[in-house]
Amino acid sequence: MSPREKVQIMDQEGIRRALTRIAHEILEKNAGTKDLVLIGIRRRGVPLASRLSEKIKEIEGTSIPLGILDITLYRDDLSQLDYHPQVRKTEVPFSITDKKVVMVDDVLYTGRTVRAAMDALMDLGRPKLIQLAVLIDRGHRELPIRADFVGKNVPTSRKEVIQVSLLEIDGEDKVTIVEKDT
């Protein structure tokens, strides 16, 4: 049953370059850092958001608020799971009302996580606008959702799994496509 590694599509350098580009795009699209906040979606959106904020600081010289969103309680599939996803803390120690919120996640797939994240955000306040940054967009959307900033578009089949490994969580930076054994 263990998934078999298929192909590596990004290495450490590739991830670094993609994030640098996204950081520039965010600044360009929002005309600087005014009212800008970054929210990482647990789990791998969190280190990605943190890296983006570092890069933005390098570029602009200003720190922007960084928050963490746990969307477990907003998932639409809780009653269908046969395990309990561990609920973790949402840490947004600032008001998001009238802010330009950039949500950050590792992979955009069906769109359901993003839908849950937007619901969660709305319960925290009324942002001026919400944008979405992802490292990988693999397609197969089930909801009318799109990303504003994409590291890499990767066409996949539904049988495949995108595995994002990040230094902070997994000890190394890489993105691979894995095929589920059937």
């Binding site: 746990d70 309680l73 907003y74 809780l78 309990h84 561990q86 609920v87 973790r88 803390k89 949402t90 840490e91 619901d119 969660a120 319960d123 925290l124 306040g125």
Partner: peptide, 23 residues
């Protein structure tokens, strides 16, 4: 331990203006 760990994020929800999640 699991119950106590789970209670921590719940306490955060209580500190919000909108104290409601759709779970």
């Amino acid at each position: 331990t699991l119950i106590l760990d789970t209670a921590e994020p719940m306490k955060e929800i209580m500190s919000r203006d909108i104290k409601k999640v759709p779970t």
